[in-house]
Design a protein around this nucleic acid. Structure first.
Lengths: 369, 369
DNA sequence: GCCAGGGCGTGTTACGTATAACGTCTGGCG
DNA sequence: CGCCAGACGTTATACGTAACACGCCCTGGC
């Protein structure tokens, strides 16, 4: 007694009216169903829909197969396909946290490009700090063709290396050879542009509100700043560590503005959120922005134009960044060689920067009207 | 030649050099490999690791199987499992856009709870406005066990209904019967609290900066406001439509503040981002916040405390919202009945609201010092 | 006149897993 | 003593797809 395959349901099948079974998902239509309806073999269906029928199926039958498939609403079973091919058309994007607008935009760009290649993107937000990181592969959606990882997610990287998966790094240390490919933002150039912008306005006492996160993207800011200011006579660069977040930025800025020595005339913040906090700190000290103190951000988030004054910042092409990362991964998967790419960034001058109060070589008089 | 698990990744291991096949993933270890190494049948391995071995495998052998599996670094092939079981342990989260902090947090909560059930979450950001929406099921990761959909993603809903998938709605119109379950935020209560807060301060001329997005979550705000103000003698509620975004909010607020008739003393905005724009508009008109005009937001995003003054707003428990949605979906998949849940929200009074300038029954005199 | 080969298509297999169906052996109960 | 009820395992499919290895027919070249 052979188990009856769903094939021989009935010769004169009464169409698709299940009637009896409520809340049951409609029985999936398989490639064999299409084959039967089109009068061909299942193999032919697979060939036609896989677009591999050049000299194997007549154009007429191919068209029939296609139309029948469409009519029946055929959707290939991805599990079966993956089992057969060994590939899943799914990429993992490892980001430090999704609630930051920047990485949400990176995801958006990556997902858009992935969709063009019939790829899906699944996220692995590496747990921030406290949580013990489960390996991304313990997750349910762990059938991956490749990985795109932000360098900020340093903790998750160890697990990725051993996996032998094609890996594209975003904003990684170029000396780190573990990745198959790398895509970078020209963070150093952005930091240089900011520093040049401030010194060009006349600022000499600049404090860098530096994110105290161990990450390439922040380390490179500090280095570029130092490089620029080293060439400016009389420039003094100080560094005030700050955690991420508005409130942390506020506290750090307070410390920087009330610390010993002459007050800095500009606060160069590692991201827009810290900068927003810095603005609050300055204002609570009775300092006007930008008249008494200039503040700059980084990233050009929506936040940058929501605060007052709007932040001078560096615009990072987040979506393009994600796109480029995914494009690189696609290239790696295709086996085509891919060279490291660096995306340009742009200074966006806005209202939070102006010449320092002592520009006319007289001392600052904050709060004066 | 056993594949090396990342556990024993020694600093100097020469293993990972395949030489012959470049960019090839290490051969996967299957349940049959484990079976062979443990001296049992593949079925036994499946039983043990599937935790279905109560009276079928001796505890001793079960332990052996488990340890061998761990040692070999066995990871079940999800494609094969899905093919066999017909389930994928993957849920789809449909959101209007991911770059909004709110939905990023919803995702975070949903993903966290999903992970507890060994589920993955894949996102479908319904294209905002312009883009022609590809059905979520055209996507590559279209092997889904269920769907959680925000009601804001109205355009994607049509495709979802026909699919016959278990569907949990987030913040849906309770009269809409298409979903298997629904989870809501008590938006109406939040709006009522805001309105009561403002009228309690003495405001009577309130303009609602209403998001011009067709969505239950915004419609319910308008209704609740109208309800509250109907009971306050002398209260006048006006409505100024606004698109989403800081700049749209600024324009709408400008229109509301410069329109005909007496100027409103409070702007009640449909979300924090619009509110941030409203603050900018007010300030550009020379109005102080909150002395001349009060502004309120909705959502309690990070933005709310980044602007100055900090926004009085309604805190929405976004992560819990996502968690609750996923919990409901899990219940639906388990077949256990699930009643609609409504999560409470909380008014967060901050610096952007104060009694109106005409509190002493004299007319407002804007800009005056 | 016969074979080579291209066009057209089908049968068959394997991917790795979960599970139904089937055995065996031991001890305990009537 | 007979026999059943587990405990303990194994064998055998089947899930739906992709692709290899064949076949059949027709046509053209020698």
């Amino acid at each position: 007694m052979r188990p009856v395959t769903s094939d021989e349901a009935a010769p004169g099948d009464p169409q698709d009216l299940p009637g009896g079974s409520p809340a049951r998902a409609a029985a999936r239509v398989t490639s064999r169903d299409v084959a039967r309806a089109a009068g061909v073999s299942q193999a032919a269906v697979s060939l036609v829909l896989g677009d591999k029928w050049r000299g194997r199926v007549s154009p007429g039958k191919a068209e029939v197969v296609r139309s029948v498939a469409r009519e029946l609403g055929y959707r290939p079973n991805l599990a079966a396909r993956s089992l057969r091919t060994g590939r899943t058309r799914t990429a993992l994007l490892v980001v430090p946290a999704l609630t930051t607008e920047f990485f949400a935009r990176v995801y958006t760009g990556a997902a858009r490009l992935a969709a063009d290649h019939d790829f899906g993107v699944v996220l692995y937000p590496s747990p921030e700090g406290n949580g013990v990181a489960p390996s991304p592969f313990d997750s349910a959606s762990a059938a991956l063709d490749g990985v795109i990882a932000s360098s900020m997610a340093a903790d998750a990287l160890a697990a990725l290396r051993g996996a032998g998966l094609p890996l594209v790094m975003l904003d990684s240390d170029p000396d780190d050879p573990t990745a198959a490919a790398a895509v970078n933002l020209d963070i150093a150039d952005g930091a240089r542009q900011l520093a040049t912008h401030l010194t060009g306005l006349g600022h000499r006492r600049i404090t860098h509100l530096a994110a105290d996160v161990e990450s390439w993207t922040f380390a490179v800011r500090a280095r570029a700043l130092a490089d620029v200011l080293a060439d400016v006579p009389g420039a003094v660069l100080r560094r005030q560590p700050s955690a991420l977040g508005v409130d942390a930025g506020r506290r750090a800025a307070h410390a920087a503005l009330t610390g010993p020595g002459p007050r800095p005339t500009a606060l160069l913040c590692d991201d827009d959120i810290i900068a927003a906090g810095a603005c609050k700190a300055a204002r609570r000290l009775g300092l006007r922005i930008p008249e008494d103190v200039s503040v700059t951000g980084f990233d050009d988030l929506a936040l940058a134009v929501a605060v007052e004054p709007e932040l001078t910042t560096v615009r990072l092409p987040a979506e393009e960044f994600g796109e480029a990362g995914m494009r690189a991964l696609m290239a790696v998967l295709d086996g085509t060689p891919v060279e490291a790419a660096t995306l340009p960034v742009a200074l966006v001058p806005r209202g939070s920067t102006a010449p320092p109060p002592d520009a006319g070589h007289n001392t600052a008089r904050p709060g004066g009207r």
